[in-house]
Design a protein around this nucleic acid. Sequence first.
DNA 1: TACATTTAAATTGTAAGACAAATAAATTAA
DNA 2: TTAATTTATTTGTCTTACAATTTAAATGTA
Lengths: 236, 236
Amino acid sequence: MDDNNNTEIDMKSLKRKTLSEQVIDEIINLLMTGKLKPGDRLPSEQEFMKMCNVSRPVIREALASLEVMGIVNRKTRHGTFFSEQIGSRPFAMMLALSASNLSSIIEIRVALELGLVTLAAEKITDEDLERLKETIEKMKKLPTEDSSEEDKEFHKIIAHSAKNPLFEGVINPLQQFHDQMLGNIPIEDRDLKVTLEHHINIYDALVKRDPVEAYASMYHHLNYVKNKAINNLHRI
Amino acid sequence: MDDNNNTEIDMKSLKRKTLSEQVIDEIINLLMTGKLKPGDRLPSEQEFMKMCNVSRPVIREALASLEVMGIVNRKTRHGTFFSEQIGSRPFAMMLALSASNLSSIIEIRVALELGLVTLAAEKITDEDLERLKETIEKMKKLPTEDSSEEDKEFHKIIAHSAKNPLFEGVINPLQQFHDQMLGNIPIEDRDLKVTLEHHINIYDALVKRDPVEAYASMYHHLNYVKNKAINNLHRI
DNA sequence: TACATTTAAATTGTAAGACAAATAAATTAA
DNA sequence: TTAATTTATTTGTCTTACAATTTAAATGTA
């Protein structure tokens, strides 16, 4: 503090880090430095207390936080382990903050679906393609215009075909959030023939494993769906 | 338990929910139901204790978890508030679990950048375009092949032009993680002229506000970058 | 000896009480 | 009226104790 007095130092922009946040940082660092890997067992609460020289509630707050984020799993008597992969719950919780800004949710979902279909074009297996084809065949036999279940299934297969758990952890909550908060597009707004045509175009592009064509088809489809979703939104 | 004994009930698939997790669910529900909005003040710890009939450490674990996720902000004497928007930290922490699977990180980043450039094509402002042009002009004057700073800036402007805080909260950690864990592509692998051409193509598409062309240009660019990043990865 | 049951142990889960730290609000002094 | 001081409020940390869960070890029985 005997430094140059003319230097403006904005001390207020520093946020004080609680002890539990510091413990979290240490634990995250174990992963980032490769000292521990997904699946590995962490030290027990008692051991952490000794290592970090803090009280047990501080450790518990840190671990509870990491568990809610899906980064660790805690089991009585067994211990605490790093998760093998992230799940959907953390991102689903984060989405709650945008619950009142649904158009932004729709927007990011569209963007992610477009990125996803690119990945799928590169990585999709014959098995995945077969399953996509099945949803298309199922849609051809539908008795009504309501293809919402098949539509969801179609998008889920594409999400799965990317074989990227992190991506799935992000897109699954979006798909579910979208369904939950927006409900389904009203029946009278549906055109099974158009949706089916869109799905077939996307499928064909994926068969060719052509990312740009897959993208263009998906973009076309999602714009159709997005406009209906936003119209539905304005009706609420 | 005097039900039909022939029904198989897999009780093991139910995970016991701790009290703090239940408190978290209640708080998230406040957001989901619109009872409270981003920016609103939550009840104090003492009030929660009374409402939920649990001890203070349970409340604190719940609130600490929500704070790490960026969903709430806690200030001494002031209280606890829902955040206005999500930040980057939660997703950055989630990424730590994939620290040992870098190709999957690269992959999801590419997918997200592609979705993002679509959004940008729809929403970009003249101001954003001007800033993109500035990075391009700056690149034209670079003395060496090292355009990593300008490349980062280019992608950051695009991320910002989508004007979607949630999306930014996801893509920023990916951009930073990528930079931090992968470092920069070695100088001898760089071709300023190619990168510049890619950026110009993307910029031109954005000027036209053409999503498919923006996508195709970005895909071309990111494939170039991705291959170099993966080659660099194999060298480590 | 093998299997079943009981007990002990290890770790997480919860509660209560006390004090500390930060800071806004209220009160007092100039 | 403004500035300084004090008080009050809320979060932050710690200690202690007990509860709950679950697995391993020990004991009992056939």
